[in-house]
Design a protein around this nucleic acid. Structure first.
Lengths: 220, 220, 220, 220
DNA sequence: CATGAATGAGGTTTCATTCAT
DNA sequence: AATGAATGAAACCTCATTCAT
């Protein structure tokens, strides 16, 4: 996966300016943090949020107990970092798709992603379930989701202006519906994997697209 | 919800100062179990699954820790009982709605329910997130969900034959989409309550109905 | 196994005098107690002392929790009753053997007994290990053991006077050694059953007899 | 034995009033583990296996509950460590005695040991009683005991070749008998200490030696 | 007589966190 | 910069015991 720099908002000071390594190793911090992050994702995916302890994360990463609390002030800080990381990935996906303004392509890419990095959605869902009880985290989530829906909306709007998306429902409502459907699938996917084999997923996706498309001339 | 003393039969005299109530009590098993169930729901809603401990449930119900494990063999047994309970309520709702075969009415009733017993959905979502790690529980869930989708499907089928539901998408796929949308809303509701105020919910609902309805003659 | 009346020292009042059953069923008490005793033995044998709970005993007997504490004032009372019961059996064995004054026969019978009712020794050993921490119980044990050693001694004495037992060691010391050997075997038997298959036990027994027998004329 | 403060490195200043000692401490792992081991032995000796809780061990050592489970993964791990420790001591004793090939000396040393470190045998017996229900532990025990018997056998064999041990019974059987007698004494010692005062023990020991010695020329 | 609901202490274990090194 | 020993609270659960029915 992306290395430590997938997370752009951190570390604004100049410590890393000189690429020539002098004195004590620099930059390890971010790298190690990324390793721990990955371990955290793996642990949450396997054990669920409730079963994910800092100890297990440390072990999974091959680090010591102290290291985890050294790199993350808190358990919540770690969880938050995990969430930011995942959202960043998803955001990149969306942005890439926005250029083509093709919703179907985006959803397909998204499905592809969930298949490749299947841990991601598992974890995201776990975190979502606990956001309500970690206010700081809930905040992050709201903002991210708002951003996603906005992108969706803009894509749908351009789709409407091109006649590829039905116009009788406002774009923001459609974005909400699509977003909800995606979430709903994500929610069920880990529970009933057999209901989400590739072929059926394609069918579901087609049906969703049909639901937000204008009716063909013939109508029904 | 009710605070710790929602259970009224306790400690009516002053004797309990040093010797707590012992021996065979009056109430019947089912009733007390229901009290504990309700307490469990309240706790899970407030603290989330990960934060819901038997201790807290006991305290919430005004019982001792031992009492909880007396009525429920396990924590998992308790959780399972909670889930069954909630599913039963939802099932009743669905069955009642099936008679009218009116999807919109059903969804509205459901929204009404989530508003009245707001804990229910909160809890269900929490449980869903943990089902993956409690196989026995996951099983229950699958069966229940399958049942719900089947009812949805039959309602949609009759809607299709009456011309109130679009026919270009098979009923079972529509049922899946509706189910996913509901889940998606349920997922976001606790995180962004302001996005789900009554008026907006009505709008969302209308949009969803529109998406599964046949196009008006005029079309777009 | 013997029914409730294997235990002769209890209930000296006349409640049971009339064999004709009148009014409320009498004698059930003893019978049920015996059932519970048997269950207790089974549980201790299977789970060890530390793992033997009144609950498990109740379940094993098919009784309720309350029944156990109804028939036995205490857990310790139950344990004590179990011990008395086992000692009674062993005492009967010894007494039967005393008549023949044949130590070898006694030991063989004893081995036979341990093989038939293998739970007995397992349990006795478990109880022994805990006697030190239950003074009342330790007391019983001392008295019983003293009795056994006395019988052993008297048998050995008569053996000595008949020239079948060596005379260079006082009978009471020999009794102690034999007693210790038996205990030692009992101690190891559950741990290394393969070391105590019938044939080897016979060999061990013969060796023990040889050790307390006078030397043959030839000597070594 | 030593009371709770046998561990001297603790709390040398008054700071600990409200904030207990935290962070990386000085002592070395092995030493602290040994302290806890000793505490465990003391507790088991006093309270028996069934009554020995990790909490009590922690208190006895002056540590916290968490410390105990930090040094021993499990209760069983702790028990096992205790057993290994005791067996090691006993093994050292035996090995020391093997050089002289003098069984009587060994037994006397052993008796001396049981008198000095009286907890040792008490504990060993407690553990023995529970070995049957902890298979991993039973395994350790079997191997150790087998080793002990082998040493006994070799000593007895050399005794036989020197004419100090009777030859009409194979050495391995004699070893078994001696082993059983030791175990039998160990079993009764905590229950009837008055039967095992030094003088009588000496007498018992002499009798045992006589039983495995060749008959004097005169015979009886 | 006999039950079984309920207690509350105590068991083992896991955990996030701290901090001397 | 990193460690890992140690903490202490809290988790789940089991248990002997009591006593209204």
């Amino acid at each position: 996966m992306q290395d430590a720099h997938s997370e752009p908002t951190r570390d604004t000071n100049g410590k890393t300016k000189s690429t020539a390594r002098r004195g004590r190793p620099v930059g390890d911090h971010k790298a190690k943090q990324a390793v721990l992050l990955k371990a955290a994702i793996a642990v949450i995916a396997k054990e669920g949020y409730a079963g994910a302890s800092l100890r297990k994360v440390a072990k999974q990463a091959g680090y010591t107990t102290g290291a985890v609390t050294y790199y993350f002030a808190n358990k919540e800080a770690m969880i938050t970092a995990v969430a930011e990381n995942l959202f960043d990935e998803f955001h990149a996906l969306l942005e890439a798709g926005r250029e083509h303004a093709d919703l179907k392509a985006i959803l397909e890419q998204w499905l592809e992603w969930t298949r490749t990095e299947d841990d991601a959605w598992l974890v995201l869902f776990q975190l979502l379930a606990h956001a309500r009880h970690e206010p700081a985290f809930a905040n992050i989530l709201q903002q991210r989701y708002a951003g996603f829906r906005q992108i969706f909306t803009s894509i749908l709007e351009s789709g409407q202006s091109q006649g590829r998306i039905r116009r009788d429902i406002p774009a923001d409502l459609l974005a909400d519906q699509i977003s909800a459907i995606s979430d709903g699938w994500m929610m069920m996917f880990p529970l009933e994997p057999e209901r989400f084999e590739p072929h059926r997923v394609q069918t579901l996706l087609d049906a969703a697209i049909t639901m937000i498309s204008p009716y063909p001339a013939s109508g029904d």
